[in-house]
Design a protein around this nucleic acid. Structure first.
Lengths: 172, 172
DNA sequence: ACGGAGACCTGCGGATTTCGCAGTAATGCG
DNA sequence: CGCATTACTGCGAAATCCGCAGGTCTCCGT
């Protein structure tokens, strides 16, 4: 009776996107659909999600709990810091000599750093930092990041205006 | 009987971070505290939040609704696309001649673009794009972004590994 | 100063949702 | 084949959400 929302979930979709990297635990089309629902509204009731994806309320609840436990997704409030408060934000490109991973770890450990990604291209690492004000920003970049052993150089891009911020990939 | 969680909300905190830019509607310490609660867990019950910030359940609910309506925050599920699926991600730095704003708008309109920010520094705009695979990525960069009139040059940073992604600023 | 509009909060039922648990089908493996 | 594991359904009870009716306070305008 619950329509044909997603398919029979038993056969051929089994291998659509399994373990690509080590940290990619089984994630079938139904879980994907659940995530999409929660990307539209993180507080949507389980029953409504169940109706949309073709599952019972309890099943959705169990799946969501597992996705959260596994760390596959998190349900959180997100804001534009520039809108919310008087802060300074910047993206910092970092060039490293030696072990990139350890530098990335060090950046990750800083509370002002929101986002760290290792990249291919003319930077080894991109890090987004959020600060109270200009002094704080300068401090983090010059006194903390540039002092890390192995950091060869950095380049900063101070944010002027955030134009878009979505979490809707997969929902196109 | 609600303890002294946040203060008396009537006098001096009134001007802590009011209208800095046009889009910054009044946002007092209590709303900030509510947002912080929801940054830890987007599904936390209103009553629990109320206890934490010193407000009734109904008041929290009204405030949250207003914050959502105003677009100050959104409550959503977030994931690491690289963990979730077989996708390619990249940050693209763009240099523009002429109207930066209109290029930013054009980027914003693309569904593959997750994040657009206007910056100071050697790029005018940074845009994060999420794609199905390499072909798709190449397509977006070369056939779409580079073809926009006014785009002088671009530089791409393909993501290799996401190391950190938090939404906890203000909760330090 | 008085009165009204607006913003914000509290306190309640009633509808809805969440939660925990027991029972059942499907899958994998020795 | 039989057993363990996993995932789903169906329920009742508890908790949460929701709308609404006041009440208080501030901010104007007359």
């Amino acid at each position: 009776m619950h329509s044909e929302a997603v398919a029979s979930r038993s056969a051929e979709q089994r291998d659509s996107r399994e373990s690509r990297n080590g940290t990619g635990p089984n994630l079938d089309a139904v879980s994907l659909a659940i995530i999409e629902q929660l990307q539209e509204d993180g507080r949507r009731p389980y029953a409504a999600i169940g109706k949309a994806v073709g599952l019972s309320e309890a099943a959705v609840r169990q799946r969501v709990q597992k996705l959260l436990d596994q760390g596959v997704m998190q349900i959180v409030a997100v804001t534009d810091p520039l809108t919310v408060g008087f802060r300074r934000q910047a993206m910092v490109g970092v060039n490293v000599e030696g072990d990139v991973e350890s530098i990335a770890e060090a950046l990750t450990a800083m509370s002002e750093v929101e986002y760290v990604v290792m990249t291919a291209g003319s930077f080894d690492i991109l890090a987004e930092i959020v600060c109270e004000d200009d002094d704080h920003l300068l401090d983090v970049i010059n006194k903390r990041i540039r002092k890390l052993p192995g950091v060869r150089s950095t380049e900063s891009f101070v944010y002027l205006k955030l134009k878009k911020q979505t979490y809707m990939w997969g929902t196109r």
